[in-house]
């Protein structure tokens, strides 16, 4: 089994009950290549999310992207569920903050050990961009795009549409 430290960014526009919100996350995950070939991303922060694929012989950019797609889908489903239960934007924001605040401690230890190993050996996954772990700390921003009686907290423009991305921390 081998672990890699991953940082990722996702921006999701979520429709809730009487509001439209945008959730922007910079998070951390551990990419684990199991001996049996499974390649999984396990959330560090937010810590409740995971996703992966099977039968991976060689860890490269394409395989990581496929695992990340599953991870990202689980994250988006989590936001959909929070939106379903929230009766207002303020409740949604508060619940997203709780969701993001949960750190998976076991995965955080694996992430830190994997980062140390990467820095020691100067290794990188083929076709995956590397990024200094110190340059992107976990962060969350929840904006109102639309809600009755409230002003949007972001400029409503096409630049809000951003592809999810991940990098190997180094």
């Amino acid at each position: 089994m081998k672990n890699y430290p991953i940082v990722f960014s996702c921006r999701d526009t979520i429709v809730g009950n009487g509001f439209v919100a945008q959730v922007s996350i910079d998070g951390r995950a551990v990419l684990t290549h199991e001996d049996g070939g499974d390649l999984w991303m396990f959330g560090v922060q937010p810590g409740s999310v995971a996703g992966g694929i099977g039968a991976v012989q060689h860890v490269n950019g394409a395989a990581c992207a496929a695992a990340f797609a599953q991870f990202k889908e689980h994250h988006t489903m989590s936001l959909f569920d929070i939106a379903s239960d929230a009766e207002s934007f303020d409740v949604f924001k508060s619940e997203v903050e709780k969701y993001f605040a949960q750190v998976h401690e076991a995965n955080a230890r694996d992430w830190a050990e994997a980062l140390e190993a990467v820095r020691r050996s100067q290794t990188a996954i083929d076709d995956v961009v590397t990024l200094s772990a110190d340059s992107r700390k976990p962060s969350l921003r929840v904006d109102v795009i639309w809600a009755a009686g409230r002003a949007s907290t972001v400029e409503i423009e096409a630049s809000l549409n951003v592809q999810p991305r991940f990098e190997q921390a180094a």
Binding site: S48, F80, D81, S84, Q102
Partner: peptide
Amino acid sequence: KTDHCWRIWFGEHTTKLP
């Protein structure tokens, strides 16, 4: 059970299964 997954709580932790 929610619209999209099972949500599970234990102690101070919560997670989801698809």
